[in-house]
Computed example of a mutant assay.
Amino acid sequence: MNRDSIQQLLEQVAGGKMDIESAMSELVHLPFAELAHSTLDLHRELRQGSPEIIFGENKTPQQISDNLIRIHAAHGKALATRVGADKAAEILATWSPGLPAPSYQPSARCLTLGLGQAASPADGERYVAVVTAGTSDLAISDEAALTLQFLGHRFVQINDVGVAGLHRLFPHLEVLQKATCIIAIAGMEGALPSVLGGLLPGPIVAVPTSTGYGIARDGETALHAMLTSCASGISVVNIDNGFGAALFAHALLRQF
């Protein structure tokens, strides 16, 4: 149950269209739902502005399915991140035909339920620019983009414009300047967020990725570089955390 449905429920009670006992029966499961394996936070959207999102790694296909169904029942949509292709295939193969079917995006490693197609931002509409330094960073970009879509935000993706060929960035500067927020994703030396931070006015969420050889140390070098950036207005999330970057952008956009 989200904020809109609670408001409608209260309006029905206030207008005499629903008695208190009926309203109480609707609200009894509001705070959380206890499943055999999970305790789902159904109050999170009301409290924080976004429903609980399932972290699929280390969960079984059955646990992910159960959680998707229950969260979808409460909010009309559900998202599970970090779901490998084999696990997703098992979920889809055993899904009940009487329920809305989930959709799997392999590049993002995400399962969604009740989510439509992404729409491009209209003229004058706020959006987030999701920018990658290299093609190897696309999985994290797709995770961030799908999470933004789930949270109700428009976005544009700009890919493979890192410092190895910085001229590739210049044709996109107008789009980047108009963005309300930018998610900058880079591995190797993690330089892209610093470049964007020196050129653009909006807030930047930097995402280090585990892309790189040897001393890149699975993203630690990029993480340290982003944390020590000379450019101002940059916030940094954990390595490969496209989901966390989208949630941070969501929190920023909710304040405007």
Rank of each mutant, 00 (worst) to 15 (best):
S96R: 12
P61A: 02
S50V: 13
G114M: 07
I140M: 07
H43N: 13
A101G: 00
R82P: 10
K59V: 04
A88R: 01
V128E: 05
Y127K: 09
S120E: 14
E90K: 14
G114Y: 05
T135G: 11
C110E: 07
R70A: 13
I140G: 03
E125W: 11
A89K: 13
Q117E: 15
I71F: 10
L79D: 02
Q62K: 13
G56I: 02
G98R: 06
C110I: 02
L92T: 10
Y104S: 11
A139C: 10
V83N: 03
G116R: 05
H75Q: 14
P61H: 08
A93V: 05
R70G: 00
A78T: 05
Y127F: 15
L99T: 00
G49S: 03
E57N: 12
D123T: 10
A108F: 01
K77M: 09
E57S: 13
I53E: 10
F55C: 08
P51D: 09
F55I: 11
A85R: 13
T132P: 06
A119L: 12
S96L: 11
V131S: 10
A93D: 15
K59I: 05
E143A: 14
A108T: 03
A118S: 14
T112G: 08
S141N: 08
I64P: 04
R126H: 12
A73F: 07
R126E: 14
R47E: 09
A93F: 01
E52Q: 15
L111D: 11
A139Y: 06
G98K: 04
A80L: 07
S120P: 03
K77Y: 01
K87T: 14
A89W: 03
A133L: 08
S103K: 12
A118N: 06
A129Y: 11
G134F: 07
S120N: 06
H43A: 14
L79N: 01
F55D: 00
P106L: 03
C110G: 04
S50G: 05
S50L: 14
Q62R: 15
L68N: 00
A74I: 02
G98Y: 05
L92F: 04
Q105V: 03
A93M: 00
E57T: 13
D86E: 14
I54R: 01
H43E: 14
T60Q: 04
L138K: 11
S107W: 01
G84A: 13
T81W: 12
A73Y: 07
L138F: 13
P106G: 11
